[in-house]
């Protein structure tokens, strides 16, 4: 890498900004479309599952998908690796 490339690469904060915004805005748009009870439901589900298995906040994903005329509540739980 030449000297000028180095300057260019180290200064390219615009790319960082773009990537952060892409992630953030996708997330915020998805949230804006979600029903308002979703965070509370997510918390309740976490509490129930944690009675049995120890999972982290990020291990449970709850999303509502809309098909043409039906809504699907999709729940994904990642269980910790079994200790053998």
């Amino acid at each position: 890498m030449g000297l000028f490339d180095y300057f260019k690469a180290s200064r390219n904060t615009a790319t960082v900004a773009r990537d952060r915004l892409n992630i953030l805005i996708a997330h915020e748009r998805a949230q804006a479309d979600q029903p308002s009870y979703l965070p509370a439901l997510q918390q309740d589900l976490l509490d129930v599952i944690r009675k049995y298995v120890d999972i982290g906040d990020d291990d449970l994903k709850l999303v509502i998908d809309r098909d043409d005329d039906c809504e699907i509540l999709e729940l994904n739980v990642t269980l910790p690796e079994a200790v053998t």
Partner: peptide
């Protein structure tokens, strides 16, 4: 500043 990679460019903002 866009050319220097210091500022978001038109295409970036428009795409987002």
């Amino acid at each position: 500043r866009v050319q220097m990679g210091e500022m978001l460019g038109v295409e970036d903002v428009q795409e987002i």
